[in-house]
Design a protein around this nucleic acid. Structure first.
Lengths: 194, 194
DNA sequence: CGATTAAGTCAACAGACGTTGGCCTACAAT
DNA sequence: ATTGTAGGCCAACGTCTGTTGACTTAATCG
């Protein structure tokens, strides 16, 4: 058993897993092919054999799907809460999210990918639930602002007060925030302070 | 004049300016000492002479002061608006902000620095204006969430809908957001959807 | 069995990086 | 004019990076 060889697809998967972990933890530049290969207990040349390139390996590792649920059945008043719980889930079990955030800040390809994710996945969803269709892109962008801001502070910068918040606390906070992004006043009205 | 030599402090300043630009544009790893020196029209060895280290050069370049105004005279209802305008100003004319954001995502030293900025500069300010002093750190963290989320999407990832917002539009949007971070309900109450 | 193919290793390349030490060269004081 | 010194340049070091090509081993098939 210990001397048997892995199948091609198997090793490819192992490499990809190691790559996701390294890219997510270290970002694009500091995640070296040698380190990824070492994590996968394999020779660096194998990585090149299967993925051709560091860039292509990254592209494969940073493939993000938000898996946004269809929100048609959800009452509009609960959209924010549902979305915030969903984003929190995705963020905590899909390393690709962290990869894109960590590398999108330095790498233009990753930044473009991030833009595409929000334009193609969040945009259409927002379009179906927001009052004026014209406002959909901006509202999707504001959702990005909220989600990425929280993820940045909690998972990347690890600001203690934000890390210290429990999951329900975050949902309770982020829910209304997202709700305002989706269906709230965009800032044209009077000062809504009370 | 063209053959005259610069003074020590002068070149040091030139190097620092070039370093700020490069760190801000490229992040820590991709901003090479050679490139910085080239921008400053100087030999890489000079950078070492004056700053000793890449790390020390970075530390000098990433020195951030939010220059937060004293908000004691501002009516509580306008705190969000004042703060959002101030942050927007700081963000657009101090490259150190971008440096910290770009590098704090990959570099642990920069992340620590970012944490310190919000704990030491935003924290005390929030403590003086928020209802319960115990909540100050968390509220400061939430402010960070808002400010960094917006800056990330607008200046780093360049999400088109967010880039397309005018300055007044942003202040009009961010103001109430910050207001809620400072004096609003933290999420303990009932569902505030209308 | 022998031959073919797929999976994996090894050693090395060329380039870029941070960093170092020695060598100029312009200026100021003697 | 001669020295001293501080600002600046050059060439090189050791290391790490992505990447390549030739080699070795295990499984498969005739």
């Amino acid at each position: 058993m210990s001397t048997s060889r892995r199948s091609s697809t198997e090793t490819k998967a192992v490499i990809l897993a190691a790559a996701r972990e390294r890219f997510g933890a270290d970002g694009y530049e500091r995640a070296t092919i040698r380190a990824i290969a070492s994590d996968a207990a394999i020779d660096p040349a194998m990585v090149m054999r299967y993925f051709g390139n560091k860039e292509k390996l990254f592209a494969a590792a940073a493939d993000v799907d938000l898996r946004l649920p269809a929100l048609d059945a959800v009452p509009h008043a609960h959209l924010g809460a549902v979305l915030s719980a969903h984003f929190l889930d995705r963020w905590e079990d899909d390393e690709a999210m962290m990869i894109l955030l960590r590398t999108g800040v330095t790498n233009e390809d990753a930044a473009e990918r991030m833009r595409a994710v929000f334009a193609e996945q969040v945009g259409p969803l927002v379009a179906r639930v927001c009052p004026a269709p014209t406002e959909a892109p901006r509202r999707a962008g504001l959702v990005a602002t909220q989600v990425l801001g929280l993820a940045l502070c909690r998972y990347v910068l690890r600001l203690p007060p934000i890390v210290g918040m429990t999951r329900p606390e975050i949902v309770a906070w982020l829910g209304p925030q997202l709700q305002r992004c989706l269906t709230g006043d965009l800032g044209g009205g009077a000062n809504p302070v009370g």
